[in-house]
């Protein structure tokens, strides 16, 4: 079987799709909509810091961030090529998309650890 990187990118895309589906809506609902609108109060800094102090929570958060970024990168790569007819620049678009995901992943890792 000829080696290609696509299956690994697809596994990251799929894993990220599951993570994004299961976790992101509730997080953006709470932190992005309900708390800023004042429907529910912001938790205290101490409470949220306590959650982040748990190394397992930070690790899980990093995994979710990396997977979701690769999910988004993969879809943005294909969608931009289909929408704008720029599939001939696939290598460049792939570098930009996955490169962006890697930058985000490193930022997250440096932030959390």
């Amino acid at each position: 079987m000829k080696r290609t990187i696509e299956p690994y990118l697809w596994l990251l895309f799929s894993g990220g799709g599951v993570a994004a589906a299961l976790l992101l809506p509730v997080l953006v609902l709470l932190f992005g909509v309900l708390m800023p609108l004042g429907v529910i109060d912001w938790p205290t800094v101490a409470h949220l810091r306590a959650l982040l102090d748990n190394v397992l929570v930070r690790l899980a958060l990093l995994v979710v961030i990396v997977l979701c970024l690769f999910h988004a990168a993969h879809r943005i790569r294909f969608t931009s090529e289909e929408l704008f007819g720029i599939a001939r620049y696939d290598s460049l678009i792939a570098v930009l998309c996955y490169g962006g995901a890697i930058v985000g992943a490193v930022t997250g890792a440096l932030l959390l650890f």
Partner: peptide
Amino acid sequence: FDVLNLEEAVWGCT
């Protein structure tokens, strides 16, 4: 899978 595991085969599908 030599003909399926290619960018122009299954991986081209969105």
